[in-house]
Amino acid sequence: MVFESYILPVLIFAGAGLIAGALLYAASKIFAVKADEKLEAVNEALPGINCGACGYSGCGDYANAIIDGAPTNLCKAGGTAVAEKLAEILGVEAAEVDQLVAVVHCNGDCNATSPKYTFDGVSSCAAAKRFYGGSESCAYGCLGFGDCASVCPNGAISIKDGLAKVDKSLCVGCGLCEKACPKKIITMKSIKKFVDVACSSTSVGKTTKEICKVGCIACKICERKCPEGAIKVNNNLAQIDYSKCTSCGICAQSCPTHAIVDCRNSLEVRN
């Protein structure tokens, strides 16, 4: 009884599995595909998070492209370390990677702004945006439902007080959040630049001041103080030309509403 109902089925399955395994082994020997040794090493060296920032559909696809002669410095997530490793594997000169980091151009958390209405719908920025541009009183600000955080492959974005925050040490610069943000307030910048305009409002200064304590009011003080002439106030919003910016931080110190922030001493892009 025990044999028929318990042991026999197990034996049958073990036997069938063994035969199947033997067949597959034989097939894999007959139809073996020669794998490139370099390809395997390149695959090892890449971070394997498949973020797509290099422009290929994943790490495996990029590895194939590298073997076919693609540049070794496209991996934003791995940065210079990975580029050096790749160059070593292929025996070519290592090229520097300009590592990018995501910046949320809004500083309006719960303390600085107030909601326009209570949104009870699906907890997503894209959904909230469809109702009169979102529940924030500022039409340009972060909605704080975390569409960016949910696409981040490395968990670098968190929502604190209704505002998306980027952890610079975790951000790999893939730019997925930039694409996910329905308000288009996330952009990528070089990790070596330290000042950002943390506001996206193009309303006139008076309107911005009424609804947000930390918004850019287009007072143009930064424009005058910047020694390099890197800041221009366009359409009621300060904009930094990073090709001229030396990250001196004078603009951040002089901004009356702290809409320009200096992140050199903080782990987050902004605190």
Partner: peptide
């Protein structure tokens, strides 16, 4: 189990 075997075979063959 049997279906998986044939799928694996065809996968190796196609590759």
């Amino acid at each position: 189990l049997i279906i998986a075997l044939f799928v694996q075979l065809i996968e190796i063959f196609l590759k």
